[in-house]
């Protein structure tokens, strides 16, 4: 293909996206579009899967059966989200195996938020409220993205997410109306999760070089800073209802902007955790790898069983 032909194909491709057409797996697409989507969708999938780990620890420690059922259901949803997304990425020509390899070898990233520890039951509430809340904001924006399978996965995921946030907030409401010790636990969880939650939206726009291309492909419908602002504005009244303080002395309503002003994120911490030096990076990856390795015999047995059954059918047919 000549350079001119390629340019024309790329222009037609972009025109389709501009017309709000969806791109489907077998359609022609620029190689960079394919690679960028494989990277983003698989990292999104990894985040869903690794995101189950901080919560899994609390299933057996949930204070009531009702809370335990809700938490189990939420974690099961996250496993499902991972599967929807892995399937979407596979339509672009990468295998599930390859994606797992990338995760397990540390080559692929996942959301840094899951590299923080979940220390108390109030963390289960705070994760649902803030972490799922921030994820929802990102994911709602992505429902309109240009790649069909990714957009459909987002629609399905968004339908399921709002229960996650509500069950988290409901945990905190109960604790916030409880004993002084319970209230203190809520405040403590807030103090630890607030800033990492704001970091979930990624670097500042000025430091986020991929934004322009991503906006063109509708992989980004709002910038990092816009989403972060939206999150702060939405969350402050919810924190007030709980009667807790947001750990930021610069947080203040700005009447002129009609938005909350807020303090600066500790970007050193942000990059440290991204680079693998967060409090739980090692632990999470080890847990994930060990689950995969310990499951090998089950996967092999399932294949052996399927082959045996298939052979039986052949014999019966004769």
């Amino acid at each position: 293909m000549s350079e001119k032909e390629l340019k024309s194909l790329e222009d037609q491709f972009q025109a389709r996206i501009d017309r709000d057409e969806k791109i489907e797996p077998k359609d022609w697409m620029p190689e960079k579009y394919r690679q960028t989507h494989i990277r983003q969708i698989s990292q999104h999938a990894h985040s869903e899967i690794v995101g189950m780990l901080p919560e899994a620890n609390w299933i057996t420690r949930a204070p009531t059966l009702r809370r335990k059922l809700a938490l189990l259901a939420k974690i099961q949803d996250e496993g499902g989200h991972g599967l929807y997304l892995y399937s979407a990425a596979e339509t672009l020509g990468i295998s599930r195996e390859e994606m797992y390899d990338q995760l397990h070898s540390g080559k692929a990233k996942y959301s840094s938020i899951f590299n923080y520890p979940a220390l108390t039951w109030a963390d289960m509430g705070t994760i649902g409220w803030l972490v799922d809340g921030a994820a929802i904001m990102n994911q709602v924006a992505l429902m309109g993205t240009s790649y069909g399978p990714y957009s459909r996965a987002m629609v399905r995921i968004c339908k399921e997410e709002s229960f996650h946030q509500r069950q988290g907030y409901s945990i905190l409401l109960t604790m916030a109306n409880g004993t002084p010790e319970q209230k203190a636990m809520v405040q403590d969880a807030m103090n630890r999760w607030w800033w990492p939650s704001l970091m979930m939206f990624g670097p500042k726009d000025a430091d986020s070089p991929n934004t322009e291309q991503s906006v063109k492909w509708k992989l980004k419908r709002k910038t990092n800073d816009e989403l972060r602002q939206q999150f702060v504005d939405q969350t402050v009244p919810q924190a007030n209802i709980l009667g807790i303080t947001i750990p930021d002395d610069k947080l203040k309503w700005n009447e002129e902007r009609k938005h909350y002003d807020f303090g600066e994120i500790d970007w050193d911490e942000f990059w440290q955790v991204v680079k693998g030096h967060g409090p739980c990076n090692k632990q999470r990856l080890e847990a994930r790898k060990s689950a995969w390795e310990k499951g090998t015999w089950v996967r092999d047995a399932a294949v052996a069983y399927a082959e045996k059954q298939a052979n039986k059918e052949v014999k019966q047919a004769i």
Binding site: L83, Y84, S87, E90, R96, R152, A153, R156, R299, A302, V303, Y305, A306, Q309, A310
Partner: peptide
Amino acid sequence: CGSLHASD
């Protein structure tokens, strides 16, 4: 509605 991996 989607796809998944399974042995049989």
